[in-house]
Amino acid sequence: MGEILDEINRVHREVGTRKAGAEEAGTVLLRRTYDAEVADVWDAVTSPERIARWFLPVSGEFTAGGHYQLEGNAGGEILECVPPERLRVSWLSGPEPGFSEVEVRLAPEGDGRTVFELEHVAVVPEEFRARFGPGAVGIGWDLALLGLATHVAGGEITPEEAAAWQTSPEATAIVTRSAQEWGAAYAASGAGPEVVATTTAATIGFYTGA
């Protein structure tokens, strides 16, 4: 478990807000460095065959203006694609329309390393944000980045292994650490201690069933 906790600790997290038209959107940002070339990380996050190996199966038209659908998860439009630097997509899950976008940005760092940055900007119902804070979204992205880390390092996780891991004590420990880190990022953005404590606890419960 120590190695996976180390991967969680490698992520820098930020929480904020920005305007999305007339509404206020919440933002979560994750940044970390992978020991892989930019071209390889770019291929891992844009190739349908490789996305299925570390995240979820995906279908669609994989070009700017095309639409994609992750199996059992979000779908949307590919809004911007600038290889190998930037990918921006709408990120919609559920029948209700709304503003939600994800942008991935890559930059080389040193010899054979890549700085990976993911920002998710979304208008979230106030009652949901008040109950769970940013960790409800942030934990999901932490887990995705763990999968990407395993993949670019040459490892593979089968869907059966991933499903079994989600109910393991190790997964509970990882989710708890991730929620705590998002709580710290929330506090750094200006949230009060009581709000941070209650939203962190609610998010841990949401993911673990505790």
Rank of each mutant, 00 (worst) to 15 (best):
S90P: 13
R88L: 00
E101L: 07
G75S: 12
E117Q: 13
I78P: 08
P84N: 08
N73P: 00
E119N: 05
A107I: 11
E96P: 04
L106Y: 11
P84A: 02
A122R: 01
R113D: 07
S90M: 13
E103V: 14
G75L: 05
V121M: 13
V115S: 01
F99K: 00
G75C: 08
E117A: 12
E96K: 13
E80H: 12
H120E: 01
G98I: 05
I78S: 02
E80A: 14
P108R: 09
G94W: 14
V89F: 00
F116G: 01
P95H: 12
E85W: 03
V82R: 14
C81Y: 08
P83F: 12
E101A: 12
L92Y: 03
P108C: 08
V102L: 01
L106D: 03
V102C: 04
H120M: 09
P84M: 11
F99M: 01
P97R: 06
L118G: 10
R86P: 10
P83H: 00
V104R: 04
E117T: 10
L79F: 02
N73F: 14
V121R: 08
V115L: 05
S90R: 10
G75M: 09
T114L: 07
D111L: 15
I78K: 02
E117M: 10
A122L: 09
R88Q: 08
R88W: 05
F99W: 00
G110P: 09
E109C: 13
V102Y: 02
P83G: 08
E109P: 07
T114N: 05
V82K: 08
G112P: 10
P97Y: 06
V89P: 07
P83M: 02
E85P: 07
L79S: 10
L87V: 00
E119F: 01
E77H: 10
A74W: 04
S100L: 00
G112K: 09
H120N: 07
V102H: 08
L106Q: 04
V115N: 04
G76H: 09
H120W: 02
A74D: 07
E109R: 15
P83Y: 02
E109I: 15
A107N: 14
A122D: 06
E85A: 03
E80P: 11
L106T: 09
E96A: 14
R86I: 00
A74P: 06
G94P: 06
G94D: 14
E96W: 11
V104E: 04
V102S: 05
G110L: 11
D111F: 15
R113L: 14
V102M: 02
V115P: 11
L118M: 14
A74F: 06
P95S: 15
N73G: 08
R113W: 02
G75F: 07
A122I: 02
A74N: 12
P95Y: 09
P97I: 07
L87D: 03
A74M: 15
V102A: 06
T114P: 11
R113Q: 09
E77R: 13
V115I: 15
V121P: 05
S100D: 07
E85D: 09
E77L: 10
F116M: 09
G76P: 09
S100W: 02
S100M: 05
L118W: 13
T114G: 10
R88M: 00
G110C: 14
E85S: 01
E103G: 05
L92N: 06
A74Q: 11
L106H: 05
T114I: 07
P84L: 02
V115H: 03
R105P: 00
I78Y: 13
E101R: 03
G76I: 12
E85I: 00
